[in-house]
Design a protein around this nucleic acid. Structure first.
Length: 221
DNA sequence: AACCAGGACGTGA
DNA sequence: TCACGTCATGGT
């Protein structure tokens, strides 16, 4: 049994069970009826539409969401993002010049707010210096506060780069399938997907989103 | 009321 | 290198 078939079969079965996901969720799509089948924390998805982000504002929102989502439930991240948006701080330059207390207040619901405040500022300075260009993976990883998963999430969903995202749900699923054990590093797992699947950012986006959807439904208890 | 959530970093051995 | 502690809010 080759790995390619195992991984593509898994993708097919999850897509059949859960449908197209349409990540990354965006705030402004919440109440636009783009995906009426989804509700609650699953608003903001845009299934079968891979044209996002459509502008710099959406791209920046994805980046901040990826940082705020570290070890945190998405519903809490949404609260922080909506709070930032209502303060008009979902904008790189405005965020940099904003008062620290205002930002802390806005992102508090996402938890770890002192660390995440620092991470947001460091990333935002980097983001502005990019001036619209796509960052390299190494440059992102060298930023304090950007680890491998956040890095690949940003590259895959904000920049459409073919980087497979590995999170705890991914590891849990692969362990259940007896494909990996605890000795596998982040890069080992990432390469397992990238070396055995077609290099297609749309499929990578869907695959990771499906793994998360599966993870959310199969609670650990 | 403990446990988890779409991790990353700092430390000591 | 690696196992472990820390960071923190909100839902179940």
């Amino acid at each position: 049994m080759n790995i390619t078939k195992i991984l593509s079969d898994k993708y097919s079965s999850m897509r059949k069970a859960f449908g197209f996901q349409g990540w990354w969720p965006l705030l402004e799509l919440h109440d636009k009826g783009i995906n009426p089948a989804k509700s609650g924390s699953m608003k903001g998805y845009h299934p079968k539409d891979y044209s996002y982000p459509k502008n710099d504002s959406q791209r920046f929102e994805i980046c901040l969401g990826a940082i705020l989502a570290q070890n945190t439930s998405w519903s809490n991240v949404e609260k922080a993002l909506m709070s930032l948006k209502s303060r008009r701080l979902l904008d790189a330059k405005r965020l940099l010049s904003a008062d620290e207390k205002i930002i802390l207040e806005a992102i508090r619901p996402a938890g770890y707010y002192n660390q995440k405040y620092r991470k947001l500022k460091i990333f935002t300075e980097f983001y502005i210096a990019l001036d619209g260009k796509t960052p390299s993976r190494d440059d992102l990883l060298n930023l304090w506060g950007i680890g491998p998963e956040t890095c690949d999430s940003i590259l895959l969903y904000a920049y459409k780069k073919e980087e497979f995202v590995v999170d705890t749900y991914t590891r849990r699923m692969l362990k259940g399938m007896k494909l990996i054990d605890n000795s596998w590093t982040y890069d080992d797992v990432k390469e397992l997907f990238e070396d055995n699947l077609p290099r297609d950012y749309k499929m990578f986006q869907e695959y990771h989103a499906l793994i998360v959807e599966r993870g959310k439904r199969m609670k650990v208890k």
